[in-house]
Design a protein around this nucleic acid. Sequence first.
DNA 1: TTGCTCCTCACGTCACGTGAGGTGGC
DNA 2: TTGCTCCTCACGTCACGTGAGGTGGC
Lengths: 268, 268
Amino acid sequence: MKEFLSIKEFSKISGIESSTLRYWDEIGLFSPARRDLTNNYRYYTPPQLIAVNFITVLSNLNIPLKTISSIENERNPESIMDLIDQQEYLLDMEMRRLRESYTTIHTRRELIKQGLKADSTKISVINMPERVVVLGPKTSFKKDEPFYRPFVDFCNNAKDLRINLNYPIGGFHEDFEMFFQAPGKPNHFFSLDPTGNRILPAGEYMVAYSRGYYGEFGDLHERMAKYAKENDLLIKGEVYTIYLHDEICVKNPSQYLAQVFVAVSKEK
Amino acid sequence: MKEFLSIKEFSKISGIESSTLRYWDEIGLFSPARRDLTNNYRYYTPPQLIAVNFITVLSNLNIPLKTISSIENERNPESIMDLIDQQEYLLDMEMRRLRESYTTIHTRRELIKQGLKADSTKISVINMPERVVVLGPKTSFKKDEPFYRPFVDFCNNAKDLRINLNYPIGGFHEDFEMFFQAPGKPNHFFSLDPTGNRILPAGEYMVAYSRGYYGEFGDLHERMAKYAKENDLLIKGEVYTIYLHDEICVKNPSQYLAQVFVAVSKEK
DNA sequence: TTGCTCCTCACGTCACGTGAGGTGGC
DNA sequence: TTGCTCCTCACGTCACGTGAGGTGGC
């Protein structure tokens, strides 16, 4: 009758490959109910479908087969509940991790998209929605020092300060004067982490772009000052620099694309 | 100065093992900016931290290193955006999958927990919250046939009917008379899928337990009928049987624990 | 000389997937 | 005899981890 199922039938119904079933048998995780004595054929029973489905679920959750094996051998309600308790916790962590990865690549994607739309020669004033970042500690540039060491310091301290470096990283100047003096030497580095604590309020921002290697802005600071003057703009507060296109998506360093923005208001 | 970082420094700052960095170098995914000509030491630059962080994110998302390699080699904004688009979709699928696995093990856990609390000798009437299941097609038991073939039929058709077999599976009798005649031969099998379409309304249910192998209920049907009579209970509608403890969590088949419940009301 | 960092090379691990070559019943 | 299912055994894959044995500068 249908009391026993061949490996092929069992594989088809359960959706598990024969090779996987043989492997699970080999390591003692899940064995057929019966073996034919003459030809060693594997035979499974219908109720084994229930057990194998459960193993499949656990395996899909990336639980090591050894762990599953150990609870299958010492099978009692309490240990299964313990395992499930643990797994519910781990699953929760994993889902948080995935969600975070999701927002990191999504954030990156939005920057790249902005970069593709941007006209890097034009300065403009636009209304930007609220944004959020995480500021690092104050940088300490020595005279004529490039950004390497301060940047490494920032990365080095990031773990202790719970700053996520997987988000795009930008530069922060306390005011336009600071930016004007040394556009390539920000007073802080920041992470574009959307769970951040520093809020850039929605409103009018002067936005400029510059192509070139990290920290090289050519005459951008002068062009920005000139634009503000010509358009009667009052520059208010901090200057943010982020790279829309960096080494992640562009080969030629001279084509990296920086975006600089600073809050402005019309002078009366 | 700090223009170049040794593999140990780079490993510490980025949080990536040296062995992983060597492997990524070996397969051409991510190589140090410079190699010392005399001793072959690897040296990385600070900006490489940005690139390696991005690779880490992609790798954490289980994107094959070959895929990451290919976009790293042909690095342009459009292909990176394409990759991210695809990954956002896959991530969404993966998160759904995890959530579903979560509910399957959670459902299982709740049953096991109920089973531990249950007094298997006692019948009682309790107020149950609303529940939901997915009914399979009508079973076709032949005379004196055990549950094997109808159960396998159910499992076989499950994919086409989009019935998820990873949830606990139970038996359904159309009324108590059917159950009384053949407790081990349900008119339908069902999956305890909480996204199901068949609603068991909240209300008063007579609940009984039975220990034994699948489909073996001893004199449970008689005890249930007697209990209903003695307590002036009117039995209404369908009878549901689920295994709180089955081969997944109990070794001895005679200790499997079934729960049978059916809606009742007090006779006036 | 000692200690340290780094190197290459080889082998192990995990959970299978993929043939190669062979068997048993219709 | 042919075709089919199943078997075992060996080797490949992926992304590393883990020594073993050796080098170069302080």
